[in-house]
Nucleic acid binder design. Structure first.
Lengths: 239, 239
DNA sequence: TTGAGTTATCAAGAAAGTGTAAAGATGGTT
DNA sequence: AACCATCTTTACACTTTCTTGATAACTCAA
């Protein structure tokens, strides 16, 4: 096998392996470390997600069949705040599974059993990309006034005090923040937070915007962050 | 997670297909164009390389088995000056071929016969990447005198002070601005802002033009921006 | 100058949209 | 089974926007 010599960026690349099968884990550990990669390991989705947030790996190898959470779900959750390369491993060779994973945000998909050489080659491709694409190692944290939204850790702070938000509250806030400064229609919020079948339940949005304001605004009747655009929707205000 | 806004870049993406087999070419032509991609075709490496230089496609689908030049060679030549995504198609399923192609600079590798759905999914992955890498596009902002209309943020400023407009007011202003310098008839304004069933209510337009002037003009009786063209309609004045 | 048709202004009532509290429903946990 | 957090649903008060009619001002041609 004519492998290329480990290049300098490979040597320093940090890879997170999320895989529950001890045998595959052992095998990949040997392969990857012997090729000069630094390795982190997680045996379940929960721990994997946590480590992505805390360790910031350069690349994620994700087994689709984890015990605690579906791999698709993991991919989607990651893609809400990071664009770190995800290579999916799976025993499923069905076209539908591949398409679903790739469209959920995965960057590559390999079917088990895979060839080691191909995995390493695809790893090199991915790392080549991420080096070109991301010279900035900026933390995905959104800040505005006293408010801080840490997308990686799913935490919201107001003057350094953590604010607890329910899943829907948080989801709505991240949507507003993603379009910061722009108006988001109630319809769009419903579609993104509840799904496309809820687009008529416009009162949901009002209830939750009220709750968000109660938690985030000093004076909910005179909001600084979440501005209503009557007849249109809501906007996260930026200076 | 719901998908991001229907990516206009996908619809308009230009793909160069370098493939000598007429049958596969015909098949891919049908598949790709029916999915909204714009397509260029080359039947040999020579022509393919030429077209990359002259047409600047967003993505290249490259058959490895071309008559005049080896696909590896093509990849290497391209990588000397461009980082345009290359997806390789090949009948060769050998690990060595894949590794060689990927290390030569290809971004993905599919073995014939490949599944259409997977190809399309991997296409979406590649285009997603190139979109992230692309620099931000300028947001559309209309300016005239002290007035600034920020279409992307749905905001209107007068000497840097934000002016609040109701939905209809804003709608009418954007119509006028869209036809800046040209006369827009009352009928047309009614049709665009209220809908085709209101085209007789010419009264509405007068009321709202008055409101707009009150908000935007320093002296509403001597308008600088919104000019009445008696007997015809209104015109947004440009110098 | 006069008068008919068009345009501008104003303000009140109607309609639509929004904010808020709180009760009921749901689902998971102990 | 009782608890808890969260989500859903309802009801009502409130705000903003839209519609409408009355009236004044203007334009242009006879």
């Amino acid at each position: 096998m004519t492998e290329l010599p480990p290049s300098t960026e490979q040597i320093n690349s940090l890879i997170l392996l999320i895989e529950d099968d001890p045998q595959i884990r052992r095998f990949l550990r040997a392969t990857l470390t012997s090729h000069g990669y630094r390795l982190l390991e997680a045996t379940n989705a929960q721990d994997g997600l946590r480590q992505v947030g805390s360790q910031h790996p350069d690349l994620i190898i994700l087994d689709l069949g984890l015990p605690d959470l579906d791999g698709l779900e993991v991919t989607q959750q990651l893609r809400e705040w990071t664009s770190t390369t995800i290579i999916v491993l799976s025993v499923r060779d069905q076209e539908q599974d591949k398409i679903a994973a790739l469209d959920a945000g995965a960057d590559d998909y390999l079917t088990k059993p895979f060839s080691t050489g191909e995995l390493l080659a695809r790893l090199r491709v991915a790392l080549r990309h991420s080096r070109l694409a991301a010279p900035d190692v900026e933390e995905p944290v959104f800040t505005a006034g006293d408010l801080r939204v840490d997308l990686a850790h799913r935490q919201v702070f107001l003057k350094n005090n953590e604010i607890h938000l329910t899943p829907i509250e948080y989801k709505l806030l991240t949507i507003l923040v993603r379009y910061a400064g722009k108006v988001v229609t109630g319809r769009q919020l419903l579609k993104e937070a509840w799904g496309p079948t809820y687009t008529t339940e416009s009162h949901y949005v009002r209830v939750y915007m009220g709750q968000l304001r109660r938690k985030l605004e000093t004076d909910p009747t005179r909001p600084r962050y979440i501005i209503t655009e009557p007849g249109i929707g809501y906007r996260f205000k930026v200076e």
